[in-house]
Measured scan of single mutants.
Amino acid sequence: MVQRGSKVRILRPESYWFQDVGTVASVDQSGIKYPVIVRFEKVNYSGINTNNFAEDELVEVEA
């Protein structure tokens, strides 16, 4: 279970941040499909630095 402030590695192959490390900004408990919002240092092609992920697409590298 990841929690706010954890450092996580992204396992979603189609993601711009695949294999990159980001910080968990928040975790939604309402039961949505992609409840974990992760914030990154670098921006993607659209200038965005956050994205939603499912918990099984993340691996915690640092608490």
Rank of each mutant, 00 (worst) to 15 (best):
M1A: 13
M1I: 11
M1L: 12
V2A: 04
V2Q: 04
V2K: 04
V2G: 03
Q3V: 12
Q3L: 08
Q3A: 10
Q3T: 11
Q3D: 04
R4H: 07
R4D: 05
R4V: 15
G5S: 01
G5F: 03
G5Q: 02
G5T: 02
G5K: 02
S6V: 09
S6G: 04
S6W: 09
S6P: 03
S6E: 04
K7M: 09
K7V: 10
K7E: 05
V8H: 03
V8A: 00
V8F: 01
V8S: 00
V8D: 05
R9A: 05
R9S: 06
R9G: 06
R9P: 04
I10G: 02
I10Q: 02
I10S: 00
L11T: 07
L11G: 02
L11Y: 05
L11A: 03
L11S: 04
R12L: 05
R12F: 05
P13L: 10
P13F: 10
P13I: 13
P13N: 06
P13Y: 09
P13W: 09
E14K: 08
E14Y: 11
E14R: 08
E14T: 14
E14H: 11
S15D: 06
S15T: 02
Y16D: 05
Y16T: 03
Y16M: 03
Y16C: 05
Y16V: 04
Y16E: 06
W17S: 01
W17F: 02
W17C: 03
W17A: 00
W17N: 01
F18K: 00
F18H: 05
Q19Y: 08
D20V: 09
D20E: 13
D20W: 08
D20A: 10
D20N: 09
V21D: 03
V21T: 07
V21R: 00
V21S: 01
G22I: 08
G22N: 02
G22S: 01
G22E: 03
G22Y: 08
G22Q: 04
G22F: 05
T23S: 04
T23P: 00
V24P: 01
V24C: 06
V24F: 07
A25R: 05
A25K: 09
A25T: 14
A25L: 15
S26W: 14
S26E: 12
S26G: 14
S26Y: 15
V27M: 06
V27P: 00
V27E: 02
V27Q: 01
V27A: 03
V27S: 04
D28Q: 08
D28W: 04
D28K: 05
D28S: 09
D28F: 06
Q29N: 12
S30Y: 06
S30G: 10
G31E: 10
G31K: 09
I32H: 10
I32C: 12
K33Q: 11
K33L: 11
K33D: 09
K33F: 06
K33W: 05
Y34G: 04
Y34L: 07
P35S: 10
P35Y: 10
P35R: 11
V36K: 00
I37W: 15
I37P: 00
I37V: 14
I37D: 02
V38F: 02
V38P: 01
R39Y: 11
R39T: 11
R39C: 14
F40H: 01
F40L: 00
F40N: 00
F40M: 00
E41F: 07
E41K: 08
E41H: 08
E41Q: 09
K42Y: 07
K42D: 06
K42V: 07
K42N: 10
V43M: 12
V43I: 08
V43T: 12
V43E: 10
V43Y: 15
V43G: 08
N44I: 03
N44E: 04
N44W: 08
Y45E: 15
Y45L: 15
S46C: 15
S46K: 13
S46G: 09
G47Y: 05
I48S: 14
I48E: 15
I48R: 10
N49P: 02
N49G: 06
N49V: 05
N49A: 07
N49E: 03
T50H: 11
T50R: 05
T50D: 04
N51H: 13
N51W: 15
N51F: 11
N51K: 05
N51S: 15
N51V: 10
N51Q: 15
N52W: 10
N52E: 08
N52Y: 09
N52D: 07
N52F: 08
N52M: 10
N52L: 04
N52C: 14
N52G: 10
F53E: 00
F53W: 02
F53I: 01
A54Y: 06
A54F: 04
A54G: 08
E55P: 14
E55H: 15
E55L: 15
E55S: 09
E55V: 14
E55T: 13
E55K: 09
E55W: 15
D56Y: 14
D56C: 12
D56N: 12
E57K: 02
E57H: 01
E57Q: 02
E57C: 04
L58T: 02
L58I: 12
L58K: 00
V59L: 12
V59F: 08
V59W: 08
V59Y: 08
E60V: 15
E60C: 14
E60G: 07
E60Q: 13
V61G: 03
V61K: 03
V61F: 05
V61I: 10
V61L: 09
V61Q: 04
E62W: 11
E62N: 11
E62G: 13
A63K: 11
A63D: 13
A63Y: 11
